[in-house]
Design a protein around this nucleic acid. Sequence first.
DNA 1: GCATTAATTGACCGTCGGTAAATAAGGTGG
DNA 2: CCACCTTATTTACCGACGGTCAATTAATGC
Lengths: 195, 195
Amino acid sequence: MTPRKAVVEELDKEKIMQAARELFVTKGYRSVSMRGIAGRLGYSHGALYYHFKDKADLFSAMVMADFDRLNDRLDEAMAEHTDHPAATLERIFMAYIRFGLDHKPHYEIMFMLEQSELNDAARRAQMVSYDRFAAAVLRLLRDSGKPGGVPIAVPWSLFLSLHGFVAYYLHTEQTYDQLLGLAEQYVGLMVRGLG
Amino acid sequence: MTPRKAVVEELDKEKIMQAARELFVTKGYRSVSMRGIAGRLGYSHGALYYHFKDKADLFSAMVMADFDRLNDRLDEAMAEHTDHPAATLERIFMAYIRFGLDHKPHYEIMFMLEQSELNDAARRAQMVSYDRFAAAVLRLLRDSGKPGGVPIAVPWSLFLSLHGFVAYYLHTEQTYDQLLGLAEQYVGLMVRGLG
DNA sequence: GCATTAATTGACCGTCGGTAAATAAGGTGG
DNA sequence: CCACCTTATTTACCGACGGTCAATTAATGC
């Protein structure tokens, strides 16, 4: 009936991503449909395809925004480097876990999507974010005076460990606060492995 | 036209699970459909619903069979307990990683399915299998003469670490043999954390 | 005011998981 | 051998999905 709305209520990428986020909170991202997102906004589903090429394109845009946030959190954790490198390391690890558990719907699409559900740009953002993490970890390990070189596989192992922790609790109801003690034990185990 | 086939070519659960497995190898399990499985066997999709209540029921049956196999592998790794407990621990960890990477399609449905995609029995099998793992790890840690008690969270942390490793490489082309060196470093880091 | 462009609708396509009635084969008792 | 019941399968159907596209109307530029 009205194949174009008044400009004040026009759709844009931000509104679409926001609606998608709200749906992710209640249902898992698997069951969030393009039709559902459009319906929540009062539009027909076809309108979304004017703003995003397809569902992977929408997911990817959200993922890239989320990686920017994660990078900020890790930067903050590193910025307080007044104490020992080992303590900074623990802060970074805890910041990672906290980000994952405080923003489960975000983390879910960042790391739990199949590769086919993301476009190239989003995959690049994943890798870039990991590179920052790895560089920071390597620097801290060297600063803390490790004898000899630090094997390049170490940051990767640490990342995998952190991801394993978050990924498991992603689909439970438990919050970061509830898991705090366990997370600290876990991180402690990780850091002791580096000694 | 022929609403029942000759008895020699009747469908059964085994045939269906086998066909599903074959499809998992080429496509991810996400894109394996009930129609696709039936088609591969030369049946119409409705026939599957006579043998399995729904897709979750089919997946769950496969998952439970896979946990039996994983339990066997871990039992084998523990059985060779001629040497130090620490060496046995490493063998168990490596056996876990090996199972995951040697049987990626199996591991995928065992651990990467959403809870809603499994029925109660399959969820129980997951927990029982973890309990075996945890009991074995706890026993070995105590045998190796840990001073004081071993926190109950330790086996769980170890499991999460192993899962993190396997989960990441699940969607890559890399084989267990190619990742052997990295896996050994990773396991080494884990065990050192216990010292 | 008129032509052009931008944004939205809604019909349509093929595929999915799932249900249920119809139907034919297998098994059973007389 | 036949009648009857059970078992296994087909097929049509449902609603929902992702995605495409011509039609349509609001906004914009000249």
